[in-house]
Design a protein around this nucleic acid. Structure first.
Length: 421
RNA sequence: GGAGGAGUGCCCGAGUGGCUAAAGGGGACGGACUGUAAAUCCGUUGGCUAUGCCUACGUUGGUUCGAAUCCAACCUCCUCCA
């Protein structure tokens, strides 16, 4: 195991040097061997993603950035969608086993996720990244066949030594057969990819270590040298798992979180995280990153804007990033306004006596009228930049600005422009 | 299979018949202060067509004027014994 950010010494491969320098490496099954393999020529690497949610979120960005770097340095990424494994459902939540997903839902998720993945890795051309679904092979197995071909290659003795298993048993917590077998499936994925596409490296989150190691060991029993690499867990400087905001997770897909909302998330990075995030989530040269993270006090805000704009450009494209930057400047530097309506409501609703609370809910700043009411009563809601503290307030034609627009904000950071038509 | 224990709001956790939409803490959000940061202080933290109504303390029934609290059955988990 190696420490993230630790200066790499005597590395032969550029790829590994970059990943280490960026802080994208947490653990590696055999660093020297991987370094050698990477330096010998292009290799194929994969990262797997669950298809249980409709969009990826910032937590998925680290493995994706790793794939992006690998591709940039001449290697070929494969992105594996867990279409097969998602059918079983994530077994680590044992309290209220959530309903297993319908195949149709999973297919829809995969389609959405694919759009985000395409932003990060280039899927075009014969050398482009591939996207495969593990249902392709997992769905084909029959139980006896699976036991014979793979069950014989795993020993319970070995599986018992994995932390994920051991900690559960030590704590006297139940571990279902399903969970126990889950790691076999991921190992099988790795071996299948090795056979089909000559894939020799798996990248995943640090919680995937055990699963990845299993795949590497299965490969060895099949006469293959496979490698595993984990990225660190994304946490804030205060130690909290990160990726949640008032609106929920920080999604990568624009339909789940607007590019401006995404930009805002990064703009609000804590001082202590700026340098680390620049390394992890942008492709700026290290010298530039060093300069930016050395800024002090309020000057660091410039670094945060650069961070936000760079990450947004990677995930949503340069156009969207530029627009978000302008938007942010307009909004927070002076009395700026949002330039384009972010939400639309029918003009006719005004005649019906549209309530302030309804507006706050409909732009997504509150989950219920009650929550909106509390925000209003607490002085957190502004209409056209004026605090409004009457929850019974109704919106009238006279409240609209030019072009029938109404600006609504909650707190300092959440602003929306509602267009009436 | 037997004996004992547990299941509370986003999370942890108090509560053993009415004063309980449920103490306390965490988290989250809003306000003040700031730099759209951190720290600190204050406030809020089930829903609604709102001085009332509805939903909620594992599930389903029951006792009672009244139940998170008592009873029964069931479900799940834990501990010990076989």
């Amino acid at each position: 195991m190696i420490e993230a950010g630790k200066p790499a010494t005597r590395l032969k491969s550029e790829a590994l040097a970059v990943l280490l320098e960026r802080g994208l490496v947490h653990q590696c099954t055999d660093l020297e061997a991987l370094d050698r393999t990477l330096s010998e020529g292009p290799l194929t690497a994969y990262a797997g993603f669950d298809a249980t949610a409709a969009s990826l979120h910032v937590g998925h960005l680290m493995p994706l950035m790793t794939m992006r770097w690998l591709q940039k340095l001449g290697h070929r990424p494969i992105v594996v969608m867990g279409g097969g494994t998602s059918l079983i459902g994530d077994p680590s939540f044992r309290k209220d086993a959530r309903p297993m997903l319908e195949e149709r839902q999973i297919a829809a998720n995969i389609a959405t996720i694919r759009r985000s993945v395409e932003r990060l890795v280039d899927m075009e051309g014969p050398d482009g990244a591939m996207l495969v679904d593990n249902a392709e092979w997992l769905n084909e197995f029959r139980f006896l066949e699976f036991l014979r071909d793979y069950g014989s290659r795993f020993t319970v003795n070995r599986m018992m030594t994995f932390d994920s298993v051991k900690s559960r048993l030590d704590a006297q917590m139940p571990l279902t057969v399903l969970e126990f077998c889950y790691m076999m499936l991921q190992a099988v994925d790795f071996l299948e990819l090795a056979k089909r596409h000559d894939c020799v490296l798996q990248v995943g989150g640090s919680d995937q270590w055990g699963n990845i190691v299993n795949g590497v060991e299965l490969g060895r029993r099949d006469g293959r040298k496979l490698h595993g690499l984990t990225v660190p867990l994304l946490t804030t400087a205060s130690g909290a798992k990160m990726g949640k905001t008032a609106a929920g997770a920080v999604w990568l897909h624009p339909e789940h979180l607007s590019p401006f909302g995404f930009w805002q998330f990064w703009r609000n990075t804590a001082d202590a995280d700026v340098g680390r995030f620049l390394r992890l989530f942008t492709e700026l040269p290290m010298s530039e990153i060093d300069r930016l993270s050395a800024l002090q006090g309020a000057e660091l805000n410039e670094a945060k804007k650069i961070l936000a704009t760079q990450v947004t450009a990677i995930v949503h494209g340069p156009e969207e990033a530029r627009a978000a930057l302008q938007q942010g400047d307009a909004l927070f530097a002076g009395e700026g306004e949002i330039l384009e309506p972010s939400h639309k409501l029918p003009l006719a609703s005004l005649a019906e006596g549209l309530g302030l609370l309804e507006v706050v809910v409909s732009v997504g700043f509150a989950a219920s009228n009650g929550e909106a009411r509390r925000l209003v009563e607490g002085g957190g809601v502004r209409l056209n930049n004026r605090i409004v503290d009457d929850p019974r307030r109704r919106i009238a034609i006279g409240d609209l600005q030019a072009n029938d627009r109404l600006s609504v904000s909650v707190g300092k950071r959440r602003k929306a422009l509602v267009g009436f038509a």
